[in-house]
Design a protein around this nucleic acid. Sequence first.
DNA 1: ACCTGAACACCGTTCAAGT
DNA 2: ACCTGAACACCGTTCAAGT
Lengths: 218, 218
Amino acid sequence: MTKWGDRVARREDILAAGRGVLERDGYARLNMRAVADRARVSPGTLYTYFASKEALFAALYTDRLEELGRELRDEAFTGLHTAEEVIVAFMEHWFPIYSLFGHQIDVWGTLAGDSVLPPDAGQRLVGAAVSVIAEVREALGRFEPGLPEAAELGLAVPFVWSAVNGLAEHFRGPRHGLHPHSRDELTHFAARALVSGVRAALGLTHASPTHTATTTRS
Amino acid sequence: MTKWGDRVARREDILAAGRGVLERDGYARLNMRAVADRARVSPGTLYTYFASKEALFAALYTDRLEELGRELRDEAFTGLHTAEEVIVAFMEHWFPIYSLFGHQIDVWGTLAGDSVLPPDAGQRLVGAAVSVIAEVREALGRFEPGLPEAAELGLAVPFVWSAVNGLAEHFRGPRHGLHPHSRDELTHFAARALVSGVRAALGLTHASPTHTATTTRS
DNA sequence: ACCTGAACACCGTTCAAGT
DNA sequence: ACCTGAACACCGTTCAAGT
């Protein structure tokens, strides 16, 4: 039971309540009254901690992105052997997060003044997203030596990012049950196509030596 | 001025009003009162023509998809020489439509019973979308002879569709102004990467003969 | 039959009043 | 200072009443 006036613990109560409602009911049923109830505060109190529903949501998203950055660095991206494996690992970690948050909030839009987030909340969110992308880029660079110097890398990054998010959107909800292929098959197919496609479009001559030597695990 | 009791004209008034509000103000400001005002009916009347806001929106989307199918067939896909050009042409036509409708409604979700659309409205919507995809597939098949028989075509289609929608989402709103590359550059880069990537992932040996002979236009 | 518009339910947000 | 909860604004939707 958070004590009266303990703003640090109260803020954490509210964030935990938001996470709880979001995970149990999804964004569609995330409303401020439900969060207030779960955090055992009144609706008005929420607004002394977060400027708006969107700001609360952005704080939850930011926390999750920062956690993802650590997961990728410390676990998901270790022991891989090919760029394809990096993409697959990233997608498997990214899809559930996108499914909770990504569809609802536009990270880059906050930069463009698109949103009404308080500037500091927007900056934390963008920073966390940039850092996740940097992590992926670094891991890919291990197996694609030419990548960091490629002239059109600035095109490859938004292309891959967009394509991965398109797939994440595809896997959100029940619709992927419609075609006969499993989620896993499509994920692996996409990773192969993205890596080959970007290599070709960037004019990279070939993969890393480890790539051709590695046999598929499936 | 639509006459009292003319249900056909009234329905068209409502659809036209919906299109008008949507194009002027975007989905965020599309509300039933605004549509009713513009159509010069009362809010209650809307619900004798469309079961819900979503059903009205789906009808607008369906009409637009059917029009797109005709545009692709009769104009956009004629006189092209490579698969890349097909993808570029499709994206240029698709992005503005996605920007108005695609972000808000989940075509495939209606099939999965995800939505609460009346069944016939859902079926018309899905049919229009399927027909657009078939148009793209047919055009690609002209320049990729091996495509229709490829074993994993069933993976390639949702992959490309998802990637294109991810890019459409990327170009929605102002955020693409953030990186220094123009929309056109990213569109062309994506088309090249998608075509090369899918070819490689499907194990297609090579492009059509016209492809290598064509010089880049940029 | 077709249409109106007041009313209901719901939800983001505010603010005067409490402790 | 921090917190409450009634109230306001807005919007999807319904339905008794009008023509």
